[in-house]
Amino acid sequence: MNVLAIDTSGPVVGVALLVGDALSTRTERVLRGSETRIATWASELCIAAGIAVADLDGVAVSRGPGAFTGLRVGLSTALGIAHGVGCPVIAESSLRSRARRVGQDRVLSMLDARKSRVYAMWTEDGGRSVTSGPADVSVEEALSWTSGVFTATGEGALAYREALEAAGVPIASDADSPAVDTLVRFAAESLKRGEGVQPTDVIPVYLRRPDARTIAERAAAKQGVAPATR
């Protein structure tokens, strides 16, 4: 089975290719311009593995949460590839792949959501069970989800290293990994179980509304009335 995986939900973006048991990956920390990497890497990894992109049996992609614009570059590229190949998509939470990659029972997976917040997910049983999240919360709130021994991972854990260390929470050694190696292996299993979906059925997970208010909301705020929907 040939499976490609893409994750652009954090500052380190990555592409992984699994051809049978042979895994190859490309990752890089990018501030901007991930659109110059992802399709190129996908194409190059296939060539190096001796397959055509059209030979893919499935495409896996992180559907969020994550930084909106970066997330969409990976999503759009993945959906375009799957559309062109005519193969199914496995859309997985960016936080869950990161949690699974740690390989431990209890993991708090976090991505930096700016504004003093994180996108967080609490998993048990090596990522098989999602106990809390994904949610847009403060680090303190994420930490309040549980007690006992656990490991934190994800760029969010690195962004709040001090708070986590003060709470005695260890951080995974490569917490900044986009976890595409884990994503591609789990996706291969999911595809074997027939869990792939059509590219048009993939729904991104943002967890946060855009910073914009409707005319009605602006008018309500001007009059000191709480907006109806927010």
Partner: peptide
Amino acid sequence: GAVLVGLSYAKGLAAAWN
């Protein structure tokens, strides 16, 4: 942000179709 969606999708298609 809007340009990147169509651009990335197009590149995915071009890669898939070679």
